[in-house]
């Protein structure tokens, strides 16, 4: 006899299969960014843009840029749905004590947008990535 529990189990199994199917291939956004190679190129352009901005470059005075670069690539990969592992601290923990204000955050967003444009990433892809990054504002600023 089929009970409610059976139905529930079947539903969960179906959901699990669906999720597995989704997870088994890298997301569209990750691929649109050019995969890990594209993300690495975007990251490099972004870092060059940051380094040339006198308003914010002082925030990176104590930063090991090579490690920062690697974590950033991992993070963008994970956020965009790529099969990577992010080995860094949470966005909140990573920015404790840095006193990043809105002007800093705005400037960084501008540099990321420019890096994406320099890399010829289409506007829809750029906006899809920004949609995932913008909410990090609250974890990154003012603490």
């Amino acid at each position: 006899m089929l009970t409610t529990r059976h139905y529930f189990s079947a539903l969960m199994l179906g959901l699990l299969l669906l999720l597995t199917a989704c997870a088994s291939q890298p997301s569209q956004l990750y691929q649109q960014l050019g995969g890990t190679q594209g993300i690495a190129q975007i990251t490099d352009r972004f870092l060059v843009n940051l380094s040339q901005d006198k308003r914010i470059v002082h925030h990176f005075a104590q930063t090991d840029i090579e490690i920062f670069r690697q974590r950033l690539i991992e993070h963008l990969c994970v956020i965009s749905g790529g099969e990577c592992q992010y080995n860094g601290a949470s966005m909140y923990d990573a920015h404790i004590g840095l006193h990043i204000n809105q002007a800093d955050f705005d400037a960084v967003v501008g540099h990321l947008i420019n890096a994406l444009k320099q890399q010829n990433v289409p506007i829809a892809t750029r906006n899809a990535l920004l949609a995932k990054l913008a909410p990090m504002y609250q974890d990154i600023t003012y603490h």
Binding site: P122, I123, A124, T125, N127, A128, L130, A131, A134
Partner: peptide, 9 residues
Amino acid sequence: YFDAIAGRN
């Protein structure tokens, strides 16, 4: 709203 209509904000 980012990426709201046809990838536009």
